[in-house]
């Protein structure tokens, strides 16, 4: 099946700075795809190109097979988008902003908007300047969902929200994926998306460091720990080395794409003891990938 969102060698420069540098991503249907990176890594610039707000300098960005820039207007009817810090007309009530937005969309927009308000337990008569940050974020999500989007793009949707609201938010995201919607979510709170995501892409300085499904990731990045008698092993034999360290006769390495036969041989080598292979947290993987880059 063709990916729902697909970029190929996507590039964007601001002045001399490469904000996005050769980004190639593929997001399949029903995925919760987490775009992970620090502030300034290129998440928002990528998202702005995907949502047709910014043309690419080079490469392509497509959603549902259509070019994100050339077909931006058409895609707007199918792609729900919540920016990092949405701002609406704050003197309006929650109902009024929905009614206002409905003017740009199909007839069912407002009915669906009201259904999402109910689901999120939002008071339609509350003024936007009088509601909490979490409620404001939910209004943004309700507006994005009211177009009944096939694709949802959320830029740091949970930043600044309370824990309970964040959990509710993640819960509704899971529900949307269950309905077959495709979700791209950017975040620098890595631990939080670890459970819900089906796919991840780690980015830094505009570059893609690694993209994989969550299941693949467990196999592709591992930690090797052991104790040696004479010499520590040469980590490069066992895969692409992200990190090594050790103290005394204890030694460990974080490896990408480990060579399993080489590890089997190592296990049987004289003078190597207590060898252990384990998986890493998403956060540890991110740190290890960054450490190699520098």
């Amino acid at each position: 099946m063709d990916p729902i969102i697909e970029t190929h060698d996507l590039c964007k420069r601001f002045g001399g700075k490469r904000a996005v540098d050769g980004m190639s991503l593929a997001v399949p249907k029903g995925a919760i795809f987490a775009l992970l990176g620090d502030n300034g890594a290129g998440k928002t610039t990528t998202i702005r190109m995907l949502t047709g707000q910014l043309p690419a300098d080079r490469g392509s960005a497509k959603i549902l097979g259509q070019d994100c820039w050339a077909a931006a207007e058409k895609l707007r009817l199918k792609v729900g988008y919540v920016p990092e810090r949405p701002r609406y007309y704050d003197w309006m009530t929650i109902a009024e902003i929905g009614w206002f937005a409905a003017g740009f969309h199909a007839a069912e927009f407002y009915t669906r908007y009201q259904q999402w308000l109910d689901k999120f337990k939002l008071d339609a008569n509350a003024r936007l300047d009088a509601i909490s940050k979490g409620e404001y974020a939910k209004v943004g999500l309700a507006l994005a969902l009211a177009i009944d989007p096939e694709v949802l793009i959320l830029d740091e949707p949970t930043s600044g929200l309370d824990l309970l609201v964040r959990q509710e938010f993640l819960g509704s995201m899971v529900g949307m994926a269950a309905e077959g919607r495709t979700i791209l979510i950017s975040s620098h709170q890595i631990g939080e998306v670890e459970r819900v995501a089906s796919h991840v892409a780690f980015i830094a300085s505009g570059k893609l460091l690694l993209t994989a499904t969550m299941d693949e990731l467990r196999q592709r990045i591992i930690r090797l720990k052991l104790r040696y008698e004479a010499e520590p092993p040469d980590a490069a034999v066992f895969g692409s080395v992200l990190q090594t360290n050790g103290s005394g006769k204890h030694w460990q390495a974080v490896l990408q794409d480990p060579r399993l036969e080489a590890l089997e041989t190592l296990k049987r080598t004289d003078g190597i003891h207590d060898m252990e292979v384990s998986t890493l947290h998403l956060e540890e993987i991110y740190c290890a990938l960054l450490a190699r880059k520098v």
């Binding site: 029903g30 819960g171 899971v174 529900g175 994926a177 269950a178 459970r195 819900v196 089906s198 969550m214």
Partner: peptide, 15 residues
């Protein structure tokens, strides 16, 4: 159901 449990556990429905 897949959806119920996914929403309860906050994990992806595919899982």
């Amino acid at each position: 159901s897949v959806r119920e449990l996914a929403e309860q556990l906050l994990v992806h429905p595919n899982t």
